[in-house]
Design a protein around this nucleic acid. Structure first.
Lengths: 231, 231
DNA sequence: AGCGTCAAGTTGACGGTGTCAAGTCAGCTC
DNA sequence: GAGCTGACTTGACACCGTCAACTTGACGCT
């Protein structure tokens, strides 16, 4: 292969790793599918022969995960930004949830690679996601609005959001409503309210449908309709 | 290829389709992964050459989906069986949710193929799932416990359950609690209660954390602790 | 009995894939 | 300038999904 790229000097082998990641990333956004990320295509774009990729990545999956993780830091940044200065912990949870869903839908390939494929090892993507949610849940617990271990609450919250995002990604041809923002908001509200309520009702005291309906009628009747912007 | 299998008689070509499906299914349960379902392996097990598969399936994906759909009817059967004779619509929802999650975890490969991969067409697996949940949600609405369009409510309920199942399948190495049944139950309760509560709180009247906590304290105080078996 | 037909299945190949063992080559050190 | 070592290439292997062209064998018809 007589390419333009010149061999790196000893000690600078890491350069190639970066160039491969860059090539893979551009290939990913151009094609929109990870199927296009073949070792040959990536290597060619990086101006290098195919087996050279193995100098820096154990196998294709390793490369795939590494390139998808590159966009992942942005998620945390956006969550912090979006919930900055918000006091009400439930509202923080809501904002983070919306950011999470929006981010997932904006990066469907990365989301799918990091969270929707069987990953043999402890996926860093998953641990990150869980950490964010656990933090937000912990805030709700210390505010006295939720009860129980933050980790347990977080699993439920994460499940709801992840379920929505992954269904939207995997089943694009499904008969989804037009207004995705409202859909996301509905699920965020459901998950938030549900976690609060479920954490306050002991399993042994699960009410019947009638009891619950009656109780909630009384509850919501006390809330005057307020007029505040949704976000 | 001088195999044992004798060529089917004209008009009986459909026999091969069944034999291929059978071969593929057994291969799937033996290996536990759909990656092992190569056309060559399936054809060999069916006692036939590789291209013969194309007589009955358009491509590998088509075969994969067909074989995974075979187990799918069982899900509806189990749901109906498990919720038979239960009056309380919320309790029906709970039972269906637990059946759904358990079934998904018992058939991880099928679940993944049908619901966790980008499917270009309207996946029958997805439509089935959604139908079940919508039915259960509709019952809650007509009982007056939930409000709104059953389809909208169903998306949320489905998301929560699907989220849990798909995370458990895709991230087996995550730090899950030991007791999966309780975990499932938590998510089912969260989704059920949350859908009820969210459907009764207009978006414009979203309470603050403090309001919600206070209201719920009053609410649950009225429920005497009852002693009834969980299922 | 023999023949044509047509469905059922096979042969053989193509282009593509991930992966690996062995080789080469440039730059640094001594 | 010899030699070492890290950076990369060569060339191959086994396997994959898919397809066009071919063969085979059972049936209906005369």
């Amino acid at each position: 292969m007589s390419s333009t790229r010149s061999r790196a000097r000893p000690g600078e082998g890491e350069k190639l790793r970066e160039e491969i990641l860059l090539a893979a990333e551009s290939l990913l956004v151009e094609t929109g599918t990870d199927g296009a990320l073949t070792l040959r295509a990536v290597a060619a774009r990086a101006g290098v022969t195919t087996p050279s990729v193995y100098l820096h990545f154990a196998n294709r999956d390793d490369l795939l995960e590494a390139v998808c993780l590159r966009s992942w830091g942005e998620l945390e940044r956006r969550m912090r930004e979006r919930s900055e200065g918000v006091d009400d912990p439930l509202r923080v949870l809501g904002r983070c949830g919306r950011v999470y869903a929006t981010f997932g839908l904006e990066h469907p390939v990365q989301y799918r690679v990091l969270l929707m494929r069987p990953s043999a090892h402890r996926s860093p993507g998953a641990r990150e996601c869980f950490r964010y949610v656990t933090e937000a849940a912990a805030a709700c617990v210390s505010a006295g609005i939720m009860r129980g271990r933050p980790e347990s609450l977080a699993v439920g919250l994460w499940s709801a959001l992840h379920g929505l995002v992954s269904l939207l990604i995997a089943q694009p041809e499904f008969d989804w409503p037009d207004d995705l923002d409202t859909l996301i908001d509905d699920v965020v509200r459901m998950a938030g309210f549900g976690t609060v309520l479920a954490s306050r009702i002991p399993r042994e005291a699960t009410p019947t449908s009638a009891q619950l309906a009656e109780g909630l009628d009384a509850l919501t009747a006390n809330w005057p309709e307020r007029d505040q912007p949704r976000r």
